[in-house]
Design a protein around this nucleic acid. Structure first.
Lengths: 182, 182
DNA sequence: ACCTGAACACCGTTCAAGT
DNA sequence: ACCTGAACACCGTTCAAGT
């Protein structure tokens, strides 16, 4: 499948080094062949992003379902978000590529769906008293920013944590600190 | 100055649409002329990143100095970080471009310096009792992730906040929620 | 010291033509 | 329906040559 090969290529060469021609070369077809399957480069990336939102949604939902209790559900969901980013950095990069929403407005609806799921966890925490009253939307935005910040710094290697074990320990610590002790 | 023109071009066309040849065109020189001032495209971007870290450091330091008290210093610093990102998105993008550290290891020392300044604010909060005991390095990483997450989502337009006034209100709310009520 | 123009190897995209 | 090869307009980078 062309989409899988694209993900592998982004993972290897980085978002900027990804090239349609190199992709075709690896697939053993002419450089014009991908245009029979995707309108252009952006549409292929949009498909990768869409796949990413799907996978992320599944993992976050599954983690939240483990509970027990609203607070743990939220904490587990946050950790699942970060672990997804670490395991699929190419997907996350494409998913939050600036300008992608302008090119593919359909992605916005998908991203909003993920947001709504997170918000339902926040609302549950408000009801159980684990989160204070207030705008659920704003609290959801803050929660998302927390998860996203840990994810971004983790995959950009900016945290200066030497070993993968250190990195994982920190991610667990960060999410516990942020969500576990609301 | 070529560097300023580069920032303007990134701001306009995005990180991916930025091109040395277009830059030369706007400067009214031949496409080979920039190579008399910068070794290659990456070195120009590294200079932009370095400039960004310098500006960010100044603003965060100035904001932290306003105090009063360690908790407010940290909160002000966080807000200054996010406001810098919103005002200079091109700089922030380049500063956290994955792979840039591999190309220019000198940037890592500069980024670490910023990290150390943030850590000194964290330590002050620990001493004043505004933050619990524990690894100052890990707490600094978490604080950074918070700021960075709000900054990233703000400049990528992912927060679905319609007006700039809404966006600013949220940023202030987020930083208060995160740092103001430790 | 600084710039230019030609050159090379790349890239995204299109399109007539093939099976 | 799917692929190809040539073509076009771009790009980063180099280099001999100019002032």
């Amino acid at each position: 499948m062309l989409r899988e090969a694209a993900v592998a290529l982004i993972e290897e060469k980085g978002r900027a080094g990804f090239t349609l021609r190199e992709l075709a070369r690896r697939a053993g077809v002419s450089h014009a062949a991908p245009y029979r399957h995707f309108e252009d480069r952006d549409e292929l990336l949009a498909c990768v992003a869409e796949e990413g939102f799907g996978m992320l949604g599944e993992r976050v939902t599954a983690a939240a379902a483990l509970g027990p209790g609203p607070r743990d559900a939220l904490s587990n969901a946050g950790l699942a978000y970060v672990e997804f980013a670490v395991e699929h950095p190419a997907h996350l990069r494409v998913m939050f590529d600036p300008g992608l929403y302008r090119i593919r407005p359909s992605l916005m609806a998908i991203a909003e769906h993920s947001f709504d799921r997170l918000q339902s966890l926040i609302v549950a925490c408000q009801r159980s008293g684990d989160l204070p009253e207030g705008s659920a939307r704003d609290q959801t935005r803050v929660a998302w920013a927390l998860m996203h910040g840990v994810a971004e710094l983790s995959i950009s290697g900016s945290l200066a944590l030497p070993t993968p074990a250190d990195q994982q320990r920190f991610r667990a610590y960060a999410l516990r600190a942020l969500f576990g002790e609301l």
